Simulated assay, not measured.
Amino acid sequence: MEELIRVRTRALRRDMTDAERCLWYHLRAHRFMGLKFKRQKPLGRYIVDFVCLEIGLVIELDGGQHAEQVAYDLRRDGWLRGQGVTVLRFWNHEVLLQTDAVLEKLRLWVEQKQPSPPAPLPQAGEGS
Score class of each variant (00 low, 15 high):
1 M>A: 11
1 M>I: 06
1 M>N: 11
3 E>Q: 12
3 E>Y: 10
6 R>G: 13
6 R>C: 13
7 V>Y: 15
8 R>T: 14
10 R>G: 15
11 A>T: 15
12 L>K: 09
13 R>Q: 15
14 R>G: 11
14 R>L: 13
15 D>W: 02
17 T>Q: 04
19 A>I: 01
20 E>C: 04
20 E>L: 02
23 L>K: 01
23 L>E: 02
24 W>E: 12
24 W>H: 07
24 W>D: 15
24 W>R: 10
26 H>A: 05
29 A>N: 15
30 H>M: 06
31 R>N: 14
31 R>L: 05
37 F>Q: 06
40 Q>S: 14
40 Q>L: 05
42 P>W: 11
43 L>P: 05
45 R>H: 09
49 D>I: 00
50 F>Y: 07
50 F>N: 02
50 F>E: 00
51 V>D: 02
52 C>W: 00
55 I>K: 04
58 V>F: 04
58 V>C: 14
61 L>S: 05
62 D>Q: 10
63 G>H: 00
64 G>R: 07
67 A>Y: 06
68 E>W: 00
70 V>H: 02
71 A>Q: 04
71 A>I: 00
78 G>F: 00
79 W>T: 04
79 W>F: 06
79 W>D: 06
84 G>I: 01
85 V>T: 08
87 V>T: 13
88 L>A: 15
91 W>F: 11
91 W>E: 15
91 W>H: 14
91 W>V: 11
93 H>S: 14
94 E>A: 03
95 V>N: 08
96 L>R: 03
99 T>I: 04
100 D>I: 00
100 D>L: 03
101 A>G: 07
102 V>A: 10
102 V>Q: 08
103 L>V: 10
109 W>T: 03
109 W>P: 13
109 W>H: 08
110 V>G: 05
111 E>D: 05
111 E>I: 00
114 Q>V: 02
114 Q>C: 11
115 P>N: 07
116 S>C: 12
118 P>I: 06
119 A>Y: 04
119 A>L: 09
119 A>S: 09
121 L>S: 12
121 L>C: 10
122 P>M: 08
125 G>P: 08
127 G>A: 12
128 S>E: 13
128 S>I: 08
